[in-house]
Design a protein around this nucleic acid. Structure first.
Lengths: 342, 342
DNA sequence: TTTCAACACGAAAACGTTTTCGTCGCAGTG
DNA sequence: CACTGCGACGAAAACGTTTTCGTGTTGAAA
């Protein structure tokens, strides 16, 4: 086990000064050709790699970006990570991934851990608990310390920073309109509680579409779920004895639970009931019947977030500060959980 | 935007020396009570946090561990990450996640990125391409530089380091034996190519179990899949015109593709064919019929890996080096893709 | 009054870089 | 010969810590 090679060791070995070694390796014209070649040959031969920690300290930047997500089980978030990774690595950045487990405290803790030098900036999707508490002091603090912040997916208006979102309202509208066009008259909505912005916005799209089509909104057909754990039984109860021919669910899991319940009732999907989910994950593809979903392009979201963040990181400090919000459009992926259009 | 508070600034502000501030904050008895309290009050009020980079440089350790995984779409890997995160955070470590995308080059690149100071040690599951090339110089190099390494899931014997694996052979045996006990006579195996150790070992379990039950192994009933992309059609072709009543697949996806194909043939699962998969992911639970699977406890694997790594990191250098291999047992989760036992 | 601990604090080195600013020797010029 | 200029290199500061080793000031003991 040989300890890592440093400039100092090279310098001693070749009997020159540290500065000379540093300059030679960076191709400074100050150094004579002979010495330069000698040093470079030596460094290459012994596989010298500069120590990133020292560089970070010197440059006051780490070339890594932190991404904090509420949960990794959602396939959506994993595709976002891939997108961030892709762009970040292209630009020479590392990516540090942390999980908040939807807990406010863990989110704060994670940010504090990363803010003390580990990271140049953040990409994050807020924990459910955070949105509930509406306590954003940790975000403000980061911004205040000059750490750029990009919010994605679960964002809030109150914070001034770059944001990458999908158009939830329009996405929901596409889905519900599709159901209406299919001839559905009684369309149920299975959503999350309103403090998750996603739930609120998709609900909005649902309502607006119905109104636009002169279909009265029946509050009995709207279910708001608080706890993921109980969702399956809640949905089952909700669908009991209801006359519906269409369901719009705000995520895969709800959609699938709904289909199961429908089938247990002896009805068929899509013949009797058409179901559309949100978020195009592995489940949607593989489930039988495969799910018609609103697809949000996680990869794109990750890429855009990373680009936004790195842009902020690399701009000269004099440049004007202004914040962008990028909207990544959604698509409707039609599969087998909806009737085919005639 | 206020720049971060440092010891130096506190020192200047309070008109003491840097050393005094440092000592006061670390409760050194060298410092008089009055000064100590004054400094601590000031630091707390202005929310001083030591700079991790500087600490890393000084201590020559970063308190972060890097985890490199081949792909994140496998739900299994995400649970491993959670396990690592959990233990790591408990012990005051950060976790840096990188994806190799199953590419040898990306794996090497990632390791090089992390090895230069970003990380104290590695937890990794080898890329498919790496196992194919059998080129492990990057692993050896890391070990050589004194960076502990823990391999999990996809491991190789040639490298001397800590390992966390599941007992693939036994896991496969459990599954196949279960099928045999169900009365299946013609059990097919859908596996990956042999250089993925997982594929090889599970195949071994399959063969052994059949032999133990005096069932001849029929090579025509064994499918080895190279490319995930083509798996669906390959499986469909494979299952055509075959008299089988049981299938053991080495992962969820293969199992589900198999079920789909079976159903398209007009046969029923589990009435006509019982199917067992490997890896208990979201898909297995949600699919209809829900999948009977061999469950490998990713969370446990992650936890054990992290524990192993941190143990190595924190042992005093004089202690004897020796390597452990931890085997995390598998379970059989019985669901609806297999006939019920009579 | 001198001497010596004990106390409270500061100076400086070290971690591994980069970069600014010397400095030294030598060649060329007048 | 005296100056200038330049090529080639080194010293040192800086990034933010921790820690070792002073050092100056007390108060008390001799």
């Amino acid at each position: 086990m040989k300890p890592k090679l440093t400039l100092k060791k090279i310098a001693k070995e070749l009997d020159v000064s540290i500065s000379t070694v540093s300059k030679a390796l960076r191709d400074s014209p100050e150094i004579g050709e002979e010495t330069r070649e000698k040093i470079k040959a030596f460094a290459k031969h012994y596989n010298y790699k500069p120590n990133n920690i020292a560089l970070s300290l010197k440059n006051r930047k780490t070339k890594t970006i932190g991404i904090i997500i509420p949960e990794i089980v959602h396939h959506f978030f994993t595709t976002v990570i891939s997108g961030v990774e892709k762009v970040a690595n292209e630009m020479g950045y590392n990516v540090l991934v942390c999980l908040s487990d939807n807990s406010f405290d863990k989110e704060v803790l994670n940010m504090e851990m990363l803010a003390n030098g580990s990271t140049d900036g953040f990409i994050l999707s807020l924990a459910k608990e955070t949105m509930q508490k509406e306590d954003y002091h940790h975000l403000l603090e980061a911004i205040n310390q000059g750490m750029p912040l990009v919010l994605f997916d679960r964002v809030i208006d109150q914070i001034a920073c770059d944001k990458v979102i999908i158009d939830d309202v329009t996405g929901a509208k596409k889905a519900v309109q599709y159901l209406v066009d299919l001839g559905c008259k009684n369309i149920a909505l299975i959503s999350t509680v309103d403090y998750v912005s996603v739930g609120k916005l998709r609900t909005k799209g649902y309502r607006e579409t119905l109104e636009e089509n002169n279909i009265p909104v029946n509050e009995d057909l709207i279910l708001k779920i608080e706890e993921m754990e109980d969702s399956e039984t809640e949905i089952k109860d909700f669908l009991k004895n209801k006359e519906i021919d269409g369901i719009f669910a705000v995520n895969e899991h709800f959609a699938i639970s709904a289909i199961k319940s429908i089938q247990e009732q002896g009805k068929k999907v899509p013949e009797d009931v058409s179901v559309i989910g949100f978020t195009d994950g592995e489940l949607s593809k593989r489930f039988i019947p495969s799910l018609t979903t609103v697809s949000q392009h996680g990869m794109r979201i990750g890429e855009e977030s990373a680009r936004l963040l790195i842009e902020k990181l690399e701009r000269t400090p004099t440049e004007e500060d202004y914040y962008k919000t990028i909207i990544v459009e959604t698509g409707l992926v039609v599969r087998n959980s909806t009737k085919s259009k005639k």
